[in-house]
């Protein structure tokens, strides 16, 4: 009796995992068909890391038209400088448009520079707890990030929306300009999951053939 119940649970768990993986594969394959602009505007979740990452991601956002709206910025809660940079940028954007829409959200930092692997896993899980409800509430059409550790839990949440069939979220990753020969840790992970993965140096594109190289873009 006990043994058969155990087998039942095991089979159930196996089925759920298989279903999950099947959905994951399906979702990963449908990136090119996903055209959120058909409804008129594209809601973007922007992962601003800290320092140089924020500067780069703001340069990318500066090039996108006002049709990319609303814009939701997520910053790590230990980051002091990014909020100021974002507000300055959005204020300059507002001049050219009547209805600028943006919000800023904070989540726990998933990894400090040079933090060890094992403790990074724990702090990323902690950041995941905050990222899930945030991303499920905002339901962005796309997530834009360029490398800070904070992008992992947010992209995971975006991917989960797709797996559960709630919303296909496009993951757009732009590797930081300082990466010439090797990807960052976030890049190595998201290379397998991002719908559009940009690198800014040719040697890196040669190593990662699935990546997109259209020159330096920040």
């Amino acid at each position: 009796m006990f043994v058969s119940a155990f087998c039942g649970v095991l089979c159930g768990a196996f089925l759920v995992v298989m279903l999950f993986l099947l959905r994951l594969i399906t979702v990963l394959r449908t990136g090119a068909e996903c055209k959120p602009a058909k409804k008129g505007s594209v809601c973007v979740l922007i992962v601003a890391g800290s320092g140089g990452h924020t500067t780069e991601v703001i340069r990318l956002m500066g090039s996108l038209s006002q049709s990319y709206t609303p814009r939701h910025y997520v910053i790590a809660d230990t980051d002091k400088m990014s909020e100021e940079k974002i507000r300055t940028f959005e204020a300059s954007k507002e001049k050219s448009s009547t209805q600028a829409q943006f919000t800023i959200h904070r989540i726990p930092r998933s990894r400090e520079v040079r933090q060890s692997w094992s403790s990074s896993v724990l702090s990323t899980l902690y950041a995941q707890l905050y990222s899930l409800p945030l991303v499920f509430r905002l339901r962005p059409d796309m997530v834009l990030c360029n490398g800070p550790g904070t992008c992992i839990p947010l992209c995971t949440a975006g991917l989960l929306l797709g797996i559960l069939g709630l919303k296909r979220v496009l993951l757009v990753y732009v590797e930081s300009i300082c990466r010439v020969e090797s990807l960052s840790l976030s890049g190595k992970i998201l290379y397998h999951f991002a719908d559009y993965f940009f690198v800014q140096w040719k040697p890196l594109q040669a190593k990662y053939p699935k990546s997109i190289y259209i020159g330096r873009i920040v």
Binding site: C34, P36, A37, V42, R59, V174, R216, I217, V218
Partner: peptide, 19 residues
Amino acid sequence: FQRGQPENFAQFMDKAVGF
């Protein structure tokens, strides 16, 4: 040194998302 060109990124994304 030529600065990077984010407008190329914008052009790519406009096509990718369907604008």
